[in-house]
Amino acid sequence: MAEPATPDAAVPAGAPRTSGPRERGLRDGPGRLLVTLYGVFTVGAASRSLYQLSTRFEEAPLAYALSAVAALVYAFITVALVRGGEGARRIALGCCAAELAGVLAVGTWTLVDPSAFPDATVWSDYGRGYLFLPLVLPVTGLLWLRRSRRHER
């Protein structure tokens, strides 16, 4: 990809984030990897919960409802990361914190009282069925979002 002709200094402070190709936002660099992974988890969790809720909600209502909530949280973070900007960064920060809390709570819950979850969710056993990515992602996300605040100013 060609280097942009205008240096960063040409972009006025507070200009929209779409301005210069050189401007590094939430979705660039490591953010690109995060967006991709969150996108994968959004699609995965959403299709899983759609299938489960539509075919056999009665079997494990709690587990399937939780899958749907997880899908929503993932979708919010994905969109926020792609949009960028301070507002989106704050929303993503909140969602990542909620996600981390969710993984920890549900992970502990499934270990303490497995009978509450006849079927697995994305967050069961701290996301063991998903290579523990559900646990790794929010931590990485929080770190990235903290770091980007310094970069974006």
């Binding site: 490591p30 990897l33 967006v35 991709t36 992974l37």
Partner: peptide, 25 residues
Amino acid sequence: PVVAMVSLGERSRWGSATVAAGALV
């Protein structure tokens, strides 16, 4: 195809990391 598109827009090590993640998935 999805990660290939992403890596076209991210000509850095993070593009490579994204493709690696996609292949792992």
